[in-house]
Amino acid sequence: MVVLNRIYTRTGDGGDTALSDGSRVRKHDPRVEAYGTVDELNATLGLARLHAAGEMADRLSVIQNDLFDLGADLSRPGIAADAQAPYPVLRMIASQVERLEGEIDAMNARLSALRSFILPGGTALAAHLHLARTVARRAERCTTDAATGGDINADAIRYLNRLSDWLFVAARVANDEGAGDILWVPGASR
């Protein structure tokens, strides 16, 4: 359980921060950039949920919780040393990725095939989901960058990759099952 009695600690005033294993890194470390972008993604999903209801709101809630799991995973280096940790280490797992895949397949089955790229927009929910999709892609880029310099859980990367796909398909669902999608017309402004 997390207990936050004090919000400010002053320990980061010099430009460094603690990872969840207690080690300290600069605040611009690729690992910190990755989990910070995951936090930003979570905030964009909070905005999307303001416009969601029913099953979509429920699914977004589960994803937001997953993103806290993902942040915890990314904030802890040393995958090989997890077994020696004094407490269970929270890592993303394949079943979280598989759940997204199943939901993508179910949502996509209701949609007609795409004949063009989609411009972000449509309903308020769809627009927010498209924004979240772009932040998910950035989080994925940051995470793969962090993976070049250290050990990053492969399921964390897979989750972000699949989540951006999930958000794309969910945006289409939010646009009246794709009927309200705004299609790109190449060269339309010439």
Score class of each variant (00 low, 15 high):
R49D: 02
L50A: 12
L50R: 15
L50N: 10
A52R: 02
A53S: 04
G54Y: 13
G54P: 07
E55F: 01
M56F: 07
D58L: 11
R59K: 05
R59S: 07
R59T: 08
L60A: 01
V62E: 10
I63K: 03
I63T: 14
N65R: 15
D66Y: 03
D66S: 05
L67N: 02
L67M: 03
F68D: 00
L70H: 03
D73Q: 04
R76W: 15
P77R: 05
P77N: 06
G78V: 06
G78L: 02
I79A: 06
A81P: 00
D82K: 08
A83G: 09
A83V: 08
A83M: 12
Q84F: 08
Q84M: 11
A85Q: 04
P86H: 11
P86N: 04
P88L: 04
P88H: 09
P88F: 03
V89Q: 06
L90R: 13
R91A: 06
M92A: 05
M92V: 14
A94G: 01
S95Q: 15
V97C: 14
V97S: 06
V97G: 01
E98P: 02
R99Q: 03
E101D: 10
G102I: 02
G102K: 13
E103I: 01
D105Q: 09
A106H: 12
M107D: 04
M107H: 09
S112L: 09
S112K: 12
A113V: 11
L114S: 07
S116A: 15
F117C: 02
P120D: 07
P120H: 10
G121N: 06
G122K: 06
G122E: 05
G122F: 07
G122V: 02
A124K: 08
L125C: 03
A126Y: 02
H128G: 05
H128I: 00
L129S: 05
H130S: 01
H130D: 12
A132E: 04
T134C: 15
V135R: 01
A136V: 01
R137A: 03
R138M: 11
A139P: 08
R141W: 06
T143V: 10
T144R: 15
D145T: 14
D145H: 13
A147E: 08
